[in-house]
Write a protein that binds this DNA or RNA. Structure first.
Lengths: 231, 231
DNA sequence: ATATTTACATGATTTAAATCACAAAAATCA
DNA sequence: TGATTTTTGTGATTTAAATCATGTAAATAT
């Protein structure tokens, strides 16, 4: 039996926003889980048992439609919380799925402990609420975009968001590698359409690609594609 | 100068979730505003000054796209909070607009007072956080629907949501009257398409309409339209 | 090391929904 | 109450994007 990598109790949204006095309690209650690439951490409809944080790796949070379609709601990277949304209640089943994009380590605390944490730590609750408010703003922008923006605009927006979240590495490309299908699911479009749009963007010299590596070469123009022109 | 109707400091999300000891402070700090039909309460991009609650009437919360398109994010009815999302910070401008659908009264508290309220009243904060978590779930479902569901499905979903929020009155119709354009903006589609879909639904005997009054006659089948079949 | 699955790549075809273009009716306002 | 604006109603046309079809390359598993 190989031992699970343990988190440092210092990295995630929970640990960073708690009073230090609470950290031993977290240590005692957290469970670290090694996940491998493609592993489903929990699936839409599963009964809710607790809340997760990413310690290492990347996780996609997605929502299914039918047998073979999904929308990727967001990516959770180092430190990020996921599996929240289901606080407070009746909602006994996860409304979304979470899947590891690469091998990594996630941290899990059960619902009961998480709610205790909220009770003893109002500053944490406040931070969580602010985080929710931000996510809501983002969600509403995405809804608007899905309703009215072209696929090209949405792909441009997706690339800009990914760059913002992951930054660029030494070679200058956005520091996450997604399959075209995942990029499509994130933009809310089909693989084929996104494939063509990526080609267009390349021809227009806004990006360059090398397999899954994507380099944004003209962020200004890319950004323009995400703006509504006819105002 | 006609006097503004005053709220009863007992109806809205704020007043209902606060400790009673705080109510006098609310009375002292709230401002009630009479709004007339079609009045823009605040507009996307306006600097944020405070948070609103509906005392009487209905408010649509919407987000523009270009000059003549919008997506209605949600409807706020009696008691509902709106203009939140912008808590905690840097976000100095409203990301959405709020427009009265009918004459009514809204309650306003400035940001400073609202944040004090959060500080002295952790139970309220907890309730607000739960509300946010719910809204997030709903937002994510809507994103998925906008990405993958047909307009017919989205209209069906919109009608079911409206019935859930507003109920039905004595005559059996959903207790809110929207223009077809607003229904379209809520479903994330154009007026013409929604018009045709509403006709279809009528022919299929799932609903009946009389002008803006809509009666859901077969909620079961309407609900089926909102489900992904091919699983 | 080879088999099998998964991802990439592209054309052709279909289709859902947007756009365009008008009228008529209803509501609002001056 | 007459005028103007908004909303409703409906066909014809266009178009963006999905779907279908099919082959290759790359990655993963056995």
């Amino acid at each position: 039996m190989k031992k699970t990598t343990q988190c440092d109790v210092n990295t995630c949204f929970l640990c960073k926003n708690c009073i230090k006095e609470w950290l031993p309690a977290i240590s005692a209650n957290k469970k670290n889980i090694n996940v491998k690439k493609g592993q489903v951490i929990f699936s839409e409809g599963d009964p809710v048992t607790g809340i997760y944080f990413v310690y290492e790796g990347n996780v996609k949070v997605h929502k299914k439609w039918g047998a073979d379609k999904e929308l990727i709601i967001r990516f959770a990277n180092k430190g990020a919380i996921f599996g929240h949304r289901v606080l407070g209640g009746q909602a006994s089943h996860y409304p979304i799925s979470a899947t590891a994009l690469e091998a990594g380590v996630v941290c899990y605390v059960d619902m009961e402990f998480f709610e205790s944490t909220l009770k003893v730590n109002s500053q944490f609750m406040y931070q969580l609420m602010l985080f929710f408010a931000d996510e809501l703003q983002e969600a509403e922008r995405k809804m608007r975009n899905l309703a009215h923006m072209s696929v090209k605009g949405r792909v441009a927006q997706a690339l800009i968001s990914l760059k913002k979240q992951y930054g660029v590495n030494q070679e200058g490309h956005v520091d996450i590698e997604l399959t075209r299908q995942d990029l499509a699911s994130y933009a809310g479009a089909t693989y084929e359409t996104v494939f063509r749009v990526v080609n267009e963007l390349t021809q227009e010299k806004l990006i360059t690609t090398n397999g899954k590596k994507i380099n944004i070469t003209n962020e200004g123009k890319l950004f323009l594609l995400t703006q509504d022109t006819d105002l």
